[in-house]
């Protein structure tokens, strides 16, 4: 769906994006992670033809961008940073105005499509109030509605849950997952690890303009080869598993082993009461922090 080769953007002497090789496949929910200022937004803008790349090439939906924008962009829905709307028009009037721009998506179906997307994003009961009077969360929902208006094959979303309360975040997450099962590929740019962890199947991590990780989420969260055991009989277990215990505290142990079932029967046979036994996994946070440096919004003394 999205493929970039050596995508690079320089602003003067600053390299914002450096030799990016993205690969987003059909059906992915792709989490594009990176600290503030790592180049996420610049990348999103390049994919949409808003910012022109200094070097490299990219294809979106199999066609080269930005030269095929006229064919590609009608099939792409996007939220780029904050949503934007004409403040003195109502939400509905805004959607209608944006829908009448560019290649027509069918004037006859417009009112129906607007009703549909407003319902989808939870603004079904919206009245004629101008957008000026909307809350941050309502604007965010309206922005999403605008992105969904033409039933896109690919959604490019930059921080889509910005300004939403926990209920709203969950609602939007469910909506995105639902769209994904219906066949929409989603490219989600975010700095919220938890959001990406809950939503995405594939993750790319950007660090100061470079792609440092691009992998399936499950692979990143693979087991560490250690088992976490909770037991009241820590001393007994340590004696039994001499040499295998890598760490322990008063109520639990970390055991180097790749056979949870075997370890469990061994412990139980020796009379160790096991409250919980689970493979330890790498967390996305560890993986990301290990691969990246502090964000560019931190300005340390050299």
């Amino acid at each position: 769906m999205i493929q970039t080769i050596g995508l690079t953007k320089r602003f003067g002497s600053i390299v914002a994006v450096d030799g990016l090789d993205l690969d987003v496949r059909e059906g992915d929910v792709y989490g594009f992670l990176g600290a503030n200022g790592s180049g996420k937004t610049t990348t999103v803008r390049m994919l949409l033809g808003l910012v022109l790349a200094t070097a490299g090439s990219m294809t979106v939906l199999g066609r080269s961008m930005p030269s095929s924008g006229r064919e590609v962009l009608p099939q792409v829905g996007a939220l780029v940073e904050a949503p934007a709307a004409y403040d003195d028009l109502s939400g509905r009037a805004n959607l209608s105005l944006f829908d009448s721009m560019g290649p027509s998506a069918g004037r006859a179906s417009r009112a129906g499509r607007i009703d549909d997307v407003l319902e989808q994003v939870g603004l079904g009961g919206i009245d004629r109030r101008p957008v000026r009077a909307y809350s941050l969360g309502m604007r965010q929902r309206l922005g999403l509605a605008n992105a969904l208006l033409r039933k896109p094959k690919l959604l490019i979303l930059d921080e889509p849950t910005n300004g939403l309360d926990p209920q709203g975040i969950r609602e939007i997450r469910q909506l995105l997952l639902e769209l994904n099962t219906q066949g929409t590929t989603i490219f989600l740019s975010s700095h919220l690890l938890a959001e990406v962890e809950q939503l995405c199947t594939r993750v790319g991590v950007l660090d100061r303009g470079r792609l440092v990780i691009q992998e399936q989420l499950e692979v990143l969260q693979r087991p560490t080869g250690r088992l976490y055991v909770r037991t009241p009989d820590v001393a007994l277990a340590r004696g039994l598993l001499d040499g295998q215990v890598e760490d322990h505290d008063v109520a639990s142990l970390l055991v180097r082993s790749d056979d949870p079932a075997g370890l469990n029967s061994q412990l139980v046979a020796a009379g160790v009461r096991v409250e919980m036994l689970t493979p330890e996994r790498h967390t996305l946070e560890d993986v990301v922090l290990e691969a990246t440096e502090p964000g560019s919004d931190r300005v340390a003394r050299a």
Binding site: L48, G49, L73, P74, V80, A84, F98, M101, G102, P103
Partner: peptide
């Protein structure tokens, strides 16, 4: 930006 990606 939303106009240009419609695309106009």
């Amino acid at each position: 930006r939303y106009m240009l990606i419609r695309p106009v």
